[in-house]
Amino acid sequence: MIKRAAEIDNILLSLNLSIDAHYKWLVKMFRCVVSGDITQPEIIHVNSYCMCEFGQWLNNHPARENDETGYLYQIDKAHIEMHISGRILLSAIVEKRWLPEHFEHFQDTLLAFTAAVTDYKIYLLNIRSNMDILTGLPGRRLLDESFDRQLIEASPGNLYLLLLDIDRFKSVNDTYGHLVGDVVLRSLASNLSAWTREDETAYRYGGEEFIIIIKAQTDEMACQAGMRICDLIARHSIHYPDGEINITVTGGVTRAQPGEPLDVVLGRSDQAMYEGKQTGRNRCMFMDKQQKITRITRREPDHSLFTKQAAG
């Protein structure tokens, strides 16, 4: 999953530059026709599509999810065909053996390339429109729309939901003002984006609540991830123009069972998180499928990750 609005903006910029780069490529082809010189490798080489800047960008731009893979595959395919068709047309013109079909095919490949790029841009803009404006993280609607697919794609592993709520956030707003409160939310979002790993995605769910979707093989691995994130938040100060603020969060982790809707999974995480709030805050709780809530503690050698007594 694309984690930040800035990532989408960078990709969209690269796509726009790709179109510009191929306008320049067309001009180079015209020059080759006029001069009769078809020795430039970025035009005539059999692998010219790998030599252009956009081809290199494609090779270094891995897809982040299955939907994105399909768009990038179509762009890559159209890009290769466009370069091959252009090379064939150029050779035919210079050697005075061109046919109308050469031009028609080249036109078709140009249109196919721009269509593939446009489809990908529309896909990205749809995601971008569902990003949270304040924090730049994926928002609630994006999680609502993608959760069922994420749950299916997590197999044969497991999908976990970590609900985070900033402790005493109202007092931050009351003491420092809402502008500083916004700084806290933006900074926490930025930190979560940096601290989450490849198999973790952060969302702004609303207010002072954030959600981390975690892909893990076991309950213990998911709880380790939840504890790691909560600890990082507690250990890092948030800077604002007049100083810095230290915040803590209370988290609730639960595993999503196959076929469960988001609201059911979120309900368990919320219960676990609420139990953490009631028993002291600044902690991470886990609710299993039997709805037993336990407090997650730092794992020591040869010790369980959980406290021995259930919190509720």
Rank of each mutant, 00 (worst) to 15 (best):
Ile2Met: 12
Glu7Gly: 05
Asp9Ala: 03
Leu12Val: 13
Ala21Pro: 03
Lys24His: 14
Val27Leu: 14
Met29Val: 15
Val34Phe: 15
Val34Trp: 14
Ile44Tyr: 09
Val46Leu: 14
Tyr49Asn: 13
Cys52Asn: 15
Gly55Trp: 08
Leu58Ala: 10
Ile75Ala: 04
Ile75Phe: 11
Ile75Arg: 08
Asp76Gly: 11
Lys77Asp: 00
Ile84Ala: 03
Ile84Trp: 06
Gly86Phe: 05
Arg87Ile: 02
Ile88Trp: 02
Ser91Leu: 07
Ala92Asn: 06
Val94Cys: 06
Leu99Gly: 01
Leu99Arg: 04
Glu101Pro: 01
Glu101Asn: 05
His102Trp: 01
Leu110Pro: 01
Ala112Lys: 02
Ala116Thr: 07
Ala116Asp: 02
Thr118Tyr: 08
Asp119Ser: 13
Lys121Thr: 14
Leu124Trp: 00
Leu137Gly: 00
Arg140Leu: 03
Arg140Cys: 02
Asp144Gly: 00
Asp148Pro: 01
Gln150Ile: 12
Ala154Val: 11
Ser155Leu: 05
Leu161Tyr: 06
Leu164Ala: 09
Lys170Pro: 04
Thr175Gln: 08
Asp182Arg: 06
Ser193Ile: 02
Thr201Glu: 07
Gly207Val: 07
Ile211Cys: 11
Ile212Gly: 09
Ile213Glu: 05
Ile214Met: 15
Ala225Val: 06
Met227Ala: 09
Ile229Tyr: 10
Ile238Trp: 07
Glu244Asn: 06
Gly252Phe: 06
Gly252Ala: 07
Thr254Pro: 03
Val265Asp: 01
Val265Gly: 00
Val265Phe: 00
Arg268Val: 02
Gln271Asp: 08
Ala272Val: 05
Tyr274His: 14
Gly276His: 01
Gln278Gly: 00
Gln278Val: 00
Asn282Gly: 03
Arg283Lys: 14
Arg295Thr: 10
Glu300Ser: 05
Asp302Lys: 15
His303Trp: 04
Ser304Tyr: 12
Gln309Ile: 14
Ala310Leu: 06
Ala310Pro: 03
